[in-house]
């Protein structure tokens, strides 16, 4: 009969879990000033119905882009808020876009959308999109865009619902930017005082 002596446990492993990256939670709490805002990178991903979602098509709307995953508890906590925001502010020119980072894609995400009654568009993210947004290291990570498609705030980790709500309402009321409905579903951004008024084409 053979016996086993453990000569050396995997020494490296003792520290491996601790060596995971540790992104800091960085709620901005306040919107970036106009001058600090940078354009959000464009992406094109398919939603659960197979329709293309191009971020550029949301120009003229305030958009909350939420990177999340079905295995992420803090992400789940935010979902009811986003459902509420989508209902409450949609008609004012607001949209939530959820970008799932689940490795197995729609297999996990589709039933999750149904069980959580998610009313906003969900897409499956990619490494490329993650990198475009500065390497998404932790979830949830969210970006709130102004009507001109610029990043007005970003949050890593769970933040208070009221913080999101304040940011969204401020951006929706921003007098410098108005949404102009095009003949189709797309909208364009214009500036009051620059020859553009709501309801007019630039």
């Amino acid at each position: 009969m053979s016996r086993i002596h453990v000569a050396a446990a995997s020494a490296a492993l003792a520290l491996l879990l601790a060596s995971c990256s540790r992104p800091s939670s960085s709620p901005t709490r306040e919107l970036k000033s106009q001058g600090q805002r940078k354009p959000a990178p464009n992406f094109s991903l398919k939603d659960a119905d197979g329709n293309a979602v191009n971020l550029a098509d949301y120009r003229g709307k305030v958009v909350l882009i939420n990177f999340w995953a079905t295995w992420c508890g803090p992400c789940e906590a935010e979902i009811p808020w986003f459902i509420e925001f989508e209902k409450k502010y949609k008609d004012q020119g607001f949209a939530v876009l959820g970008v799932s980072m689940d490795d197995d894609g729609w297999k996990s995400v589709r039933p999750y959308i149904a069980s959580h009654k998610i009313n906003y568009r969900i897409m499956i993210g990619s490494e490329v999109v993650s990198q475009q947004f500065g390497e998404i290291e932790a979830l949830p990570t969210s970006f709130v865009l102004d009507r001109e498609g610029r990043i007005a705030s970003n949050h890593v980790g769970l933040v208070d619902k009221v913080d999101y709500q304040n940011e969204i309402t401020k951006l929706l009321q921003d007098p410098k930017s108005v949404a102009i409905r095009d003949a189709g579903s797309s909208v364009l951004a214009g500036r009051m005082g620059a020859g553009v008024r709501a309801g007019q084409r630039p």
Partner: peptide, 21 residues
């Protein structure tokens, strides 16, 4: 995860040195 965020799942290689006697 911590109290406010989660890190992506990871798979680590592990090893164990043994002596079979």
């Amino acid at each position: 995860c911590n109290n406010s965020m989660c890190l992506p799942p990871k798979t680590l290689d592990v090893s164990l040195q043994v002596e079979i006697v």
